[in-house]
Amino acid sequence: CLCSQPSVTRTVQKDGPNKGRQFHTCAKPREQQCGFFQWVDEN
């Protein structure tokens, strides 16, 4: 991610068109995240 740490892969849980879709995001706690976000299928 943007803070030079490994990102984590998560899955959208919220109902909607992206439910079940995976994405990479910053591994830090929400209030400390660098803002990195990337869909797995758009690499």
Results as ranks from 00 to 15, higher is better:
L2E: 14
Q22Y: 07
R21P: 01
R30Q: 13
F36Y: 11
F37K: 14
Q22T: 12
V40S: 12
T11S: 12
E42Q: 14
P17A: 11
S4V: 02
Q38H: 04
Q22R: 13
N18R: 04
P29L: 07
P6L: 05
V40C: 15
D15C: 07
F36T: 03
A27M: 06
F36P: 02
Q32G: 12
G16E: 08
P6E: 09
C1F: 01
N18D: 14
K28C: 04
W39V: 14
H24D: 09
D41W: 04
V12W: 13
S4M: 09
A27Q: 06
D15A: 10
T11H: 08
G35W: 00
Q33A: 14
P29W: 00
D41P: 12
P6S: 10
A27I: 04
F36V: 00
C1L: 00
H24W: 14
H24E: 15
D41S: 15
K28N: 09
P17K: 09
G20Q: 03
E31P: 15
Q38R: 11
K28D: 02
T9V: 14
T9P: 03
G20E: 04
P17F: 05
Q38T: 09
P29M: 08
Q22A: 12
R21A: 04
T9K: 06
R21M: 05
A27P: 11
Q22E: 13
S4G: 08
K19I: 08
G20P: 01
T25E: 09
E42G: 15
V12R: 06
T25Q: 14
L2Y: 13
K28V: 05
N18W: 07
K19L: 08
R21D: 04
Q33D: 06
R10F: 12
G16M: 06
S4I: 05
C34D: 01
F37W: 10
Q5E: 11
N18M: 06
K19D: 03
T11R: 13
V8M: 15
K19T: 07
F37G: 04
Q38V: 07
C34I: 00
T9S: 10
P17L: 03
E31Y: 01
E31M: 08
K14T: 11
T9W: 02
Q5G: 04
G35S: 11
K14I: 12
F36W: 08
K19M: 07
E31Q: 11
T11F: 10
T9D: 02
Q22D: 05
V40L: 11
